[in-house]
Write a protein that binds this DNA or RNA. Structure first.
Length: 557
RNA sequence: GAUUCCGUAGCUCAGCCGGUAGAGCAUUUGCCUUUUAAGCAAAGGGUCAUGGGUUCGAAUCCCAUCGGAAUCACCA
């Protein structure tokens, strides 16, 4: 069903065609200036009565009989146009104003105009239009907010619709684009930084027969020709390390990774990391690189190391604070757990009112204490180093502290933004760590890592000592652009699939029974699949007594 | 998964101790040649998320379902 406004626009479209105007012309429209360029040079342009041509979307229309003002929005901003019977009659037929602009141009339509720059009585730089043309007719009304004295009216604020229809969101809220421009600048900043260091950007498989490199549940798919199971990668770590084995000194990849887990303002099923591996380096060296790189990102994006995030100002200026995990826990809880065994740590955890259970080993307990008492309090970028071995099956054992690995994370604004190790390159130790993971898997840990024989084989051929790093691009972008939710730094955040016009999609049910189902309160396929055939039978019987249970059961096949 | 809140016109929202569905913007028509939330005059537009219950009567009260948001939990 089309709304009255949609019907009106379709009628306008028809009339345009009947009058001989193509509402979607093929020819190039030559744009001479952007709205921004005109505003920036308005004094010169006005003095010279500079002729400009500009294209964009009509965002406001104010008609006063034989003259009118409209706001044109292009990718750079907005500019007012003035169009009247007199302003165009020298170059085009008067009817272009009377019929086309006044009657057949709607808010949201994309138009092209030509004219000279001038200033109105009220002092607004505008274009005095001599030629007007519709370049694309819109069929749906656009929820345009109004603005006066800094107050905004009728903001298009439905988050679901904004995320589902990001194109509409950005038309209506152009500033949304700024976040994404910053995101690309951030990626470019990292890429330039790593390229300047001489590291090679590479691509590795997204479809993997064994999902490795992280602890997470994967998305599973199937390759028909080979009749094998494949997984969307949860990380690319093990492939990049194979490249280090193969002889590259430094490789990195911007990697879309996929994790089949819950969603929140910090989690999207697909997200982006940059991973970097550098041969002959260790995690201490990597800390300096991270500091330098993130400081540079802040400078590239903001020309200062200080970034406003929520109520805090975060300063990325080097050097950042460094704590070992034990030091951090002692600093924030007063407990020194460095010498305690599992029982001792559990006792401390209980004192700190942390819920514990018997499946938690020492490493997990420490992580809980850290996550509860330390992480949320670290606002300024802070290195936490030397993690318990149990939680890091791919990290090298600490050179001097038994039970720990050479690993660091950077915590910023209460969240992890990167993770790095001196990479484990001892193939025998690595095999043992994988076997530990298998034991966890047998105990029901769905996120324990798989044993990857080919990766072990690669290590057996020898991997140089290597430092590795993973940086969460989405979370870093959230901090660098002061966004509260990961959905605000992804153009198209994951959403539940939109209900289609056929609510019973995926089920073989004829239209007459669909009607019956709707009448009985079954609105879509999931509501049907959640019920047993006999439950549905009982309900449908009330509306249509002669229906049979067998008939309904067939829908489930 | 838990708790709380929300779903009324294209957009933003009001109406909710039960009694004929409202406003502004948007849309349509008329007037208006420097307006800027333009103005003035008029008109059209709603299965009040869905299904059921209570009732003489439900947008309003109750139950269930669907969808969304926030916080928490999960995400080493």
């Amino acid at each position: 069903m089309l709304s009255d406004q949609e019907l009106v626009r379709r009628a306008e479209l028809k009339e345009l065609i009947e009058k001989g105007f193509n509402p979607y012309p093929a020819e190039e429209f030559i744009v001479s200036h952007s709205s921004k360029e005109i505003h920036e040079n308005h004094e010169v342009f006005i003095e010279n009565k500079q002729t400009v041509s500009i294209a964009g979307r009509i965002m406001a229309k104010r008609i006063m009989g034989k003259a009118a003002f409209a706001l044109l929005q292009d990718s750079a901003g907005k500019i007012q146009i003035y169009i009247s019977k007199d302003s165009i009659k020298e170059f085009q037929d008067e009817s272009i104003f009377e019929d086309i602009f006044k009657k057949l141009t709607s808010l949201g339509d994309i138009v092209g105009v030509e004219g000279y720059v001038f200033k109105t009585k009220t002092g607004e730089t505008s274009i005095h239009v001599s030629k007007f043309q519709i370049l694309s007719k819109t069929l749906k009304p656009i929820p345009i907010p109004k603005e006066k004295d800094g107050k905004v009216f009728d903001v298009f604020s439905d988050l679901e619709l904004r995320y589902r229809m990001r194109y509409l969101d950005m038309i209506v809220h152009p500033h949304v684009k700024d976040v994404f421009i910053k995101r690309t600048q951030l990626v470019n900043s990292i890429r330039n930084f790593l390229n300047n260091k001489g590291y090679l950007e590479v691509e590795t498989p997204i479809l993997q027969p064994i999902h490795g490199g992280a602890a997470a549940r994967p998305f599973k798919t199937h390759h028909n020709a080979l009749d094998t199971t494949l997984y969307l990668r949860i990380a690319n770590e093990l492939y990049l390390k194979r490249l280090i084995v193969g002889g590259f000194d430094g490789v990195y990849e911007f990697s879309k990774d996929f994790r089949n887990e819950g969603m929140s303002r910090f989690h999207n099923p697909e997200f982006t990391q940059v991973e970097l591996y550098v041969a002959y380096k260790d995690y201490l060296w990597m800390m300096n690189l991270v500091e330098e790189m993130v400081e540079k990102i802040a400078l590239d994006l903001h020309r200062t190391t200080q970034v406003q995030v929520g109520n805090n100002i975060i300063d990325f200026k080097r050097p950042w604070k460094r704590f070992t995990m034990y030091e951090a826990i002692q600093a924030f809880t007063g407990h020194d757990i460095s010498e305690l065994d599992e029982t001792g740590v559990r006792k401390v955890a209980r004192q700190l009112k942390i819920e514990t259970d018997d499946t938690m080993d020492r490493g997990r307990l420490i992580d809980e204490i850290f996550g509860e008492y330390v992480e949320p309090k670290l606002i300024q970028p802070t290195f936490i180093l030397d993690y318990p071995l149990e939680m890091s099956p791919l990290a090298k054992k600490h050179r001097s502290k038994p039970g720990l690995v050479e690993r660091f994370e950077v915590i910023c604004n209460g969240k992890e933004i990167c993770n790095a190790y001196s990479e484990l390159n001892d193939p025998i130790d690595q095999r043992e760590r994988f076997l530990e993971q298998l034991k966890l898997k047998e105990r029901g840990d769905e996120e324990a890592m798989e044993l990857d024989e080919d990766f072990l084989r690669a290590l057996e051929y020898g991997m140089p000592p290597t430092a590795g790093l993973g940086v969460g691009i989405d979370r870093l972008t959230m901090i660098m652009t002061n966004q509260h939710s990961i959905q605000d730094v992804l153009f198209f955040p994951h959403m539940k699939p939109e209900p289609s016009n056929n609510p019973f999609q995926g089920l073989l049910i004829s239209p007459e029974y669909q009607e019956l189902l709707l009448k009985a309160g079954f609105l879509n396929s999931s509501m049907i699949m959640n019920q047993s055939p006999s439950e549905i039978y009982e309900k449908l019987k009330e509306h249509q007594p002669d229906i049979s249970l067998e008939f309904i059961s067939a829908w489930f096949d």
